[in-house]
Design a protein around this nucleic acid. Structure first.
Length: 580
DNA sequence: AGAAAGATGAACGGTTTG
DNA sequence: CAAACCGTTCATCTTTCT
């Protein structure tokens, strides 16, 4: 998946507006599906089409199903739809939230929810600039109103009549959390799993201090999560349920009822995220326990990732031939120049940026300055740089960065997979750095071969350069219909060019923006070939990975919040296929 | 020739884990 | 404690467009 891609196109969603992220109220990933079904900006459909069809008969149950999937009870959903009509999903949501959150104090409920929803559906977000005076004042007045309402609710007396869930919901929303997410989270794990400090010292003037607000939110998140009991723990060594060549750690597991397919699904992201991210992901993905695997057990490079999937885990088979597992085997030409004091046998994680010529030049000069074995301190400094930049030895005193074709091999792609067609070296490295390790994913997907001997229909979200497609193809699982959603044109080109070169007999349909993929389009696709067998994707890690010094904002980050779109699409497909 | 767009290089800490 | 991390941003150089 191309991590930067989300910022590439014109922003109808105003992701860039800091104030949206700061108070966290306007942005509600869960409701984005509702946005797109009402706003009529779907790819390949004319505006209004969605409204027309959602008023039709069968989609009424779909609508109910959708809201029930969000955690509302069927009775209330039916009531809300009756009250608002089927076409106005935002109004339905508003009503639902009103019922759910503030049944017993309708007055406050109305004002809070209408604030949230009216500001969300606020027309002009395209040319939105946080510096613009008018906009800025608008934001402030929104926030002020909200904080007035909330502070009036803030004292204990006024909250006495509210249930545990309602109190916590209000407090978290007050902290800047997205209301739908909080509601879903509480529904999934109960109010007691979310610890709230009732002593909030809210000062209005702090709202114009972005940094303070961000810090406060971060600190609060940390506090909430530190007190969270079910923190994720990582297996050490990071073998998941098992890797080839080792006795399996587990061959069976019991999935939560709600998690069982069809369709099968497979979600991937970096293992080491800010705290709490994986428990949120797991909670959304039907409480499935993530499988954490380091790809160093599949190839010569480390790649620590978490996978949430509902696939069977017995009778997994690795891709053959097995990849070389050490640097020397994978890159034999480096052996000759590899100094004895560099004891690395595995490469570190392949990332999107590589060292410059200056770094390798510096190392060469440092080594030429000493005769024989360099002093320990020099060794250590050089090794630190080598580990940091994944450098390999290519000549006397010479280290070098990995070449794109070497990375293709390490990640399990065919040689020249990303080469040519006007793609620059930088773009290759970037696209590769964002990709799956094919052997690892294929090992997990291998169980599909006997389930679907005739091939599968695949929905590939954030498909990038096609790691999932390559994995399935190498497993010998025929690809019947592949719907690939990828925002980067470069990556789409790479996938299509691979598709055309590998004698595929199926159809490849591609989409650009997952945010614009809606229920109507999915329904069309599903009815045209009878449903998806596998929904696979790794959403952007930009705001999760430790490499990001600037905006490691967690799941609510500009890019990584697209996880909620993965969930939205998955849930929609399950819904449409009648499994919700 | 000059502007615009694209490619490359270099500097930028902190959180999380065992 | 060390060690690792699917990254961002700005400056500068290079290529392409007008």
């Amino acid at each position: 998946m191309d991590g930067n891609a989300a910022s590439g196109d014109s922003d109808e969603f105003s992701w860039d507006s800091d104030s949206d992220n700061e108070n966290g109220i306007k942005k509600s990933p869960l409701s984005s599906c509702l946005d797109s079904s009402t706003a009529g900006r779907e790819e390949g459909t004319v505006p209004g089409e969605a409204n027309a069809s959602s008023a039709a008969g069968p989609s009424n149950s779909k609508l109910i199903c959708h809201f029930v999937g969000m955690g509302f009870s069927e009775n209330i959903v039916a009531k809300a739809i009756k009250e608002n009509g089927e076409e106005n999903t935002e109004a339905i949501l508003e009503t639902l939230l009103t019922y759910t959150v503030l049944e017993k104090s309708p007055l406050e409920g109305q004002s809070i929810n209408s604030d949230i929803l009216s500001s969300e559906s606020d027309g002009d977000s395209t040319s939105h600039s946080p510096e613009s005076d008018g906009d800025f004042l608008d934001e402030l007045s929104d926030v002020d109103e909200l904080s007035d309402i909330n502070s009036s609710l803030g004292d204990e007396e006024n909250m006495d009549h509210l249930s545990d869930k309602e109190k916590k919901l209000l407090l978290l929303v007050d902290m800047g959390y997205c209301i739908e997410e909080v509601s879903a989270a509480i529904d999934r794990c109960g109010p007691s799993c979310i610890q709230i400090d009732p002593h909030k010292d809210k000062k209005r003037q702090h709202f114009d201090d972005e940094r303070w607000e961000r810090k406060r939110k971060k600190a609060y998140e940390k506090k909430v999560l530190d007190e969270d009991d079910d923190a994720i723990h990582f297996p050490n060594p990071m073998l998941g349920f098992g890797v080839p060549g080792e006795p399996p750690l587990r061959t069976h597991r019991t999935l939560p009822e709600a998690a069982i397919g069809p369709p099968y699904f497979y979600y991937e992201n970096v293992a080491f995220t800010p705290k709490g991210v994986w428990s949120t992901i797991s909670r959304f993905l039907y409480d499935i326990e993530p499988e954490f695997v380091d790809s160093k057990y599949f190839c010569a490079a480390a790649r620590k990732r978490g996978y949430v999937h509902n696939l069977p885990i017995h009778n997994r088979r690795p891709l053959l031939p097995l990849q070389p597992r050490t640097i020397h085997e994978a890159l034999p030409l480096t052996r000759k120049w590899w100094p004895l004091w560099d004891r690395r046998s595995k490469l570190n994680c392949i990332q999107t940026v590589t060292a410059s010529a200056k770094t390798t030049e510096k190392i060469r000069r440092a080594l030429e300055g000493c005769e024989g074995v360099p002093p320990l301190q020099v060794q250590k400094d050089i090794l630190d740089e080598c580990r940091k930049w994944n450098l390999v030895w290519v000549g006397r005193n010479k280290v070098a960065t990995l070449e794109p074709d070497e990375i293709e091999m390490l990640l399990g792609f065919p040689k020249n997979h990303t080469r040519g067609g006007g793609i620059s070296r930088t773009d290759r490295l970037k696209a590769l750095g964002n990709s799956f390790q094919v052997d690892t994913v294929a090992y997990h997907l291998s169980v599909l071969k006997e389930i679907f001997p005739g091939g599968i229909n695949l929905l590939s979200l954030f498909s990038g350069i096609g790691g999932a497609e390559v994995a399935l193809h190498r497993l010998g699982i025929p690809l019947k219909n592949v719907v690939a959603v990828e925002i980067s044109e470069t990556s789409r080109d790479i996938l299509r060019s691979w598709w055309e070169q590998t004698n595929q007999t199926g159809n490849l349909i591609d989409f650009t923006d997952i945010r614009k993929l809606n229920a109507d389009r999915l329904e069309q696709l599903i009815s045209s070939f009878g449903g998806f067998d596998l929904i696979i994707g790794g959403s952007p890690c930009n705001n999760l990975t430790g490499s990001n010094r600037v905006s490691r904002d967690g799941l609510e980050g500009k890019h990584s919040s697209l996880f909620y779109d993965y969930f939205r699409i998955l849930d929609l497909v399950r819904c449409i296929m009648g499994k919700n």
